[in-house]
């Protein structure tokens, strides 16, 4: 049963990702990406990483994708007749090299992962074996004790991004 569910989500991700690449319409690609993100979060659930799954939905589906669609809304074509179709089509596509690189990367990763011994991975870094129902607790303890410096520094990273986006995206008149 679990294998079938896995296969279902795997196919969902693969097909929607292919649609993202293949569709020339940017909006179709964006909505197909939504399905990809949802499928990936389902895979996270199956891997036992429920916190990452929720993060994936909250940030990618709830945030990044909204940004993408906003980006589509911000564009406009200058000289378009009212009766034309209202699609935004990408003009840049490089099928040959794209497929070549994707195939190369796939072969490499497939070879890597098929030979990997995931059961034999050293587990000394996973900290205490206190088993809890959800991984959120473990993540929280690790974040606040061992990885506290990266956590605080991430605050600086977010602040730089905040200042930068506010500076770059603010219109010229309201600069000062």
């Amino acid at each position: 049963m679990i294998n079938f569910i896995f296969l279902f989500f795997f196919l969902l991700i693969a097909i929607s990702a292919i649609v993202v690449l293949w569709s020339r319409n940017v909006l179709y690609s964006a909505f197909s990406l939504l399905v990809t993100f949802l499928g990936i979060s389902a895979l996270y659930v199956m891997a036992g990483a429920d916190f990452v799954a929720v993060t994936q939905i909250l940030i990618y589906v709830g945030g990044i994708l909204v940004l993408l669609i906003f980006g589509v809304m911000l564009t406009n074509k200058g000289d378009r007749k009212t009766d034309d179709k209202n699609d935004i089509l990408t003009e840049s596509r490089n099928r040959f090299w794209g497929i070549l690189v994707a195939m190369g990367l796939f072969t490499l990763l497939f070879y890597t992962f098929s030979g990997a011994d995931f059961a034999g991975i050293h587990r000394q870094n996973f900290g205490d074996n206190e088993q809890s129902l959800s991984s959120v607790k473990g993540v929280g303890v690790q974040l606040m004790t061992e990885f506290v410096l990266p956590f605080e520094i991430t605050g600086i990273l977010l602040m730089v991004a905040l200042i930068g986006s506010a500076y770059l995206a603010s219109s010229r008149k309201s600069d000062d």
């Binding site: 410096l149 600086i156 990273l157 730089v160 200042i163 770059l168």
Partner: peptide, 23 residues
């Protein structure tokens, strides 16, 4: 992890500084 976060701070700053000449 520190390498990654440091690199990311440096890179994000550079992306912004590259685009500072908005005109």
């Amino acid at each position: 992890i520190m390498l990654f976060v440091g690199l990311e701070i440096l890179s994000v700053s550079m992306y912004i500084l590259t685009g500072t000449d908005k005109r």
